[in-house]
């Protein structure tokens, strides 16, 4: 109803303002209500990170932050892991598909696994079927992928069984030996072993086919096509080593995720200067390749008894795709290494 003495225009203007106020209020109320209704839902949900930076990944498992639940190894709490084994306790850097398996007591529903001394969390996966031959114990099996930057040496791979109430029992360890990127004859895990005397290694960052090429003091080429050095006539073959390149990494652009080739001399190589080249065989459609060449030598550890690998020389560089030559050239000169 019009107010006394209020003009029609004034009335319309006031009505419009009122309408806008109502509109804004309704808008705000609806917004607040929507947000309030959604908060409980929005705050729910389980994160499923890829966890590619973790030292171990379990295919089909769920990664959980935090330490592995359960009591330390040696406890007798249930549910328990009744068997735990693997075909090999050696773990190569970046190894994929390693199987660890075992059994758990019948009340378990899931199994957790983690390195006891590495990583930021643990993995959970469902337990398997009941095995009538073992009094109803549940079989389980985990397919493990390992990180590319694990510290070499022994590491306990710990598992635990979890029951339907989420209660974890006693943990159980299987110590695995992580070998370094440059083979050390398992010296990192077994102090009675000695690492190779010399290793010349070339590593790179992309899926390109890069080759380590070494020219020995006699001018002979050691590369992927000629992976072994030749001992000189008249030398003491027992004292001097024959070197061998361990693999042709990313050969024919079949990417192996290692991207590293190493010339290994188990014993000191023949004296003289060794020239190291990095040769881009095939860029494999990638861009510039960054590489790192290094010399690793066996030296006495501080304890004065065992030997350890020590990097004594290294150099980095970059190769452009235009430098790919299919093995027609030696490649880019990187290092000269004189051996006494």
């Amino acid at each position: 109803m019009n107010a006394p003495f209020e003009s029609r225009a004034s009335y319309k203007d006031r009505t419009n303002r009122t309408r806008h106020r109502v509109g804004r209020a309704a808008f705000g109320a609806a917004l607040v209500a929507a947000i309030a209704a959604l908060v409980p839902i929005a705050c729910s949900g389980e994160k499923m990170p890829l966890a590619l930076g973790e030292p171990i990944r379990i295919r089909g498992g769920a990664f959980k932050e935090g330490p592995l639940p359960g009591d330390p190894p040696g406890a007798t709490t249930r549910p328990e892991i009744t068997a735990y084994e693997s075909a090999s306790t050696v773990v190569r850097l970046g190894q994929s598909g390693k199987i660890v398996l075992g059994r758990a007591s019948p009340e378990a529903v899931a199994v957790g696994i983690a390195f006891a001394d590495l990583g930021t969390g643990h993995w959970i996966f469902p337990a398997g079927a009941s095995d009538p031959l073992t009094m109803g114990e549940l079989g389980w099996q985990a397919e493990c992928d390992f990180g590319i930057d694990l510290p070499p040496g022994p590491h306990p791979l710990r598992v635990v069984a979890i029951d339907a109430n989420g209660r974890a029992g006693a943990q159980r360890d299987l110590t695995v030996c992580v070998t370094p990127a440059i083979g050390d004859n398992l010296a990192a895990c077994d102090k009675t072993r000695t690492p190779p005397a010399v290793a010349i290694s070339l590593a790179w960052d992309l899926g390109a086919d890069l080759d380590l090429v070494v020219v020995d003091p006699q001018g002979r080429v050691i590369d992927a096509k000629h992976p072994r050095s030749v001992a000189d006539a008249g030398t003491d073959a027992g004292a001097l080593s024959i070197g061998a390149i361990d693999r042709d990494s990313n050969a024919s652009c079949r990417v192996d995720a290692l991207a590293r080739e190493t010339l290994v001399f188990q014993k000191p190589p023949p004296p003289g200067s060794y020239f190291v080249y990095a040769n881009l065989f095939d860029a494999c459609g990638k861009g510039a390749v960054h590489f790192r060449a290094s010399l690793v030598e066996a030296q006495l550890a501080p304890d004065g008894k065992t030997q350890v690998q020590v990097e004594t020389l290294a150099k980095t560089g970059t190769l452009l795709p235009t430098e790919a030559n299919g093995g027609a050239r030696l490649g880019t000169f990187v290092l000269e290494i004189p051996f006494p």
Partner: peptide
Amino acid sequence: IVDSLARDGLGVPTDLA
């Protein structure tokens, strides 16, 4: 989104964040 694409601490499907 509420689904069953994650696994909880018991390995049972649960809502994925």
